[in-house]
Amino acid sequence: MSASRSVRHYPGFRLLSLVFFLWLYLPIGVVIFYSFNDNRLVSVWTGFSTKWYATALSNQSLMDALEVSLVVAVLSMIFATTIALLAALVLTRAPGLKFRRVSETVVNLPLLLPEIVLAVAVLILFSQIGLNNGMVRLVLAHTAFCTPFAFMPIRARLQGMPLDFEEAARDLYAAPFTVFRRVTLPMIMPGVFAGAMTAFVISMDDFITSNMLNSGGATTLPVYIFSLIRQGTTPELNAVSTLLIAASLILATLVLVLNARAMRRSA
């Protein structure tokens, strides 16, 4: 190790970091590990079994909740990504735009404020205007707080894309929509994809708002899991959690790998 490296290193930081990463993955590992536990008691290991996965997958209420979550997440993802894309295009591409700062703040507002306040706000709004359809309520609320998550990677991509390309397209006789369809959109696609996936995951994972808006027929998976937890920890819960962990990690890896590849290509 060279001298310049050694003065930059601090004794203990390495150990602390390793412990930190262990701690970070300990809970995930524990859940996965116990999901294969044969015993009815969560934390008493008696043998390997996959029976709790079978139990979980045959639980009709659980499957219903999963379906609600998926439908809400897909719809919110589509709406949030579309709204975020339109807003990001205007905010990065319109010169001399008025209200630019305030518009950016408004798009990012759900990130700035505590979710419980927003959840209360939409609950009261919906009950005031008599919007009782559980699914519509969930999709509207989820679209709102997913929009900034979709917005950030799309805007970053647009900001990182020099205006030359769009100018070149206009120079080569492309009308405004052709410029968007053939140049802008393909070039920001990694950002759009990352934004959409993030919005999907944020919606799938949401507990606070979904719990507040919970009403007949519109119980999402996290809300249902919460009700199961209140009844006591079961190995079945571990199996469901493991499936959710696997899904999240696969999506996260997909987004990060695609983004890294896009970064390398543009570098």
């Binding site: 809970p27 524990v30 859940v31 934390s43 994972d205 919460f226 959690s241 962990i245 999240s248 999506l251």
Partner: peptide, 28 residues
């Protein structure tokens, strides 16, 4: 950095539940 962000993608309810089993009766 990827490893730091990864758990953040896991559902909040699952992350809290995991600590429930670790810290609970006869837990780890």
């Amino acid at each position: 950095i990827y490893l730091v962000t990864l758990p953040f993608w896991v559902s909040m309810i699952v992350r809290v539940y995991a600590w429930l089993i670790i810290l609970g009766n006869d837990g780890m």
